[in-house]
């Protein structure tokens, strides 16, 4: 465990506390206060993110500490977008995700800023990683709805199935964009758009699972909601592995993305 006794650490721990409070308030349906607390949590996470940008001298997306910090700051805007434009709720779940992604940033990974290695000094660095980060947050939001499909019944299950589908539709193009931008960048930096690197393969696995979900749903529609939801849950599990593979890779096989650890 790595406690951060810095202003950045303080911002992260404040955001974590507020996200936890927001999750409880949403669950007990004190919605107005919950939104305010959730918004304050976002402000703290965003402040930490901005502070990190200044500290590191580059957009904080280089290593897992920065990635989890970014994910923590992204959660609130996605919740807001989902509620305002897509009619998808489950805000308590989003606050839990926000808390969960900030835990590794606050307590697991070191915050020592590092210079960008040559390969990361590219105009594709920010769009590639950002597309993936937003896609991941959206897919995790879909994951909560998919759980709902498995455990709920009747109208509520139908509603959860619809929410899941809406969120996966939102996230899949971003997942595709991240994959394509990564391939273009790989070609420019390493000479090959596909290097069979473990992280690349896991990102392909995530993409293929969601691709399979769309084909299955195209074929059978809402006839097998549990099967649809299971595919989404498998896809989000693959996303977790993709994101964390660089660390797990120490146990198995490394690759070109090892600088991200």
């Amino acid at each position: 465990m790595e406690i951060k006794w810095t202003i950045l650490g303080l911002a992260i721990y404040t955001a974590m506390t507020l996200y936890a409070g927001a999750a409880i308030l949403f669950a007990v349906r004190v919605r107005r206060v919950a939104w305010a607390v959730y918004g304050l949590g976002f402000a703290a996470a965003a402040a930490g993110w901005g502070l990190r940008w200044v500290e590191a001298g580059h957009v904080p997306l280089q290593n897992l500490f920065e990635v989890f910090l970014t994910l923590g700051a992204l959660m609130f805007p996605i919740t807001l977008f989902g509620r305002r434009f897509l009619g998808v709720g489950l805000e308590w779940g989003d606050a839990v995700i926000g808390l969960k992604v900030l835990i590794p940033a606050g307590l697991v990974f070191g915050a020592e800023p590092r210079m960008l290695p040559p390969a990361l000094q590219s105009s594709l660095f920010v769009p590639h990683v950002t597309a993936y980060m937003v896609a991941y947050v959206v897919m995790w939001k879909a994951m909560f709805s998919a759980f709902g499909v498995l455990v709920l019944g009747g109208e509520r299950r139908l509603r959860a199935e619809r929410d899941t589908h809406v969120m996966v539709r939102l996230g899949f193009p971003l997942l595709t964009l991240g994959l394509v931008l990564g391939a273009v960048w790989g070609k420019i930096a390493w000479g090959d758009y596909w290097n069979w690197d473990p992280k690349e393969l896991w990102s392909l696995v995530s993409w293929l699972i969601f691709l399979g979900y769309f084909h299955f749903r195209y074929q059978y529609g809402k006839k097998y909601p549990r099967a649809n939801a299971s595919l989404v849950l498998t896809g989000t599990a693959a996303i977790y592995l993709t994101l964390l593979w660089v660390n797990l890779a120490r146990l198995f096989a490394g690759g070109l993305h090892s600088y991200a650890s």
């Binding site: 290097n195 690197d197 393969l201 896991w202 392909l204 696995v205 293929l208 699972i209 690759g255 070109l256």
Partner: peptide
């Protein structure tokens, strides 16, 4: 392709 990719990820590039 998913299965082969997982096998490939475990075996290294």
């Amino acid at each position: 392709l998913i299965v082969l990719s997982i096998v490939g990820a475990f075996r290294g590039d």
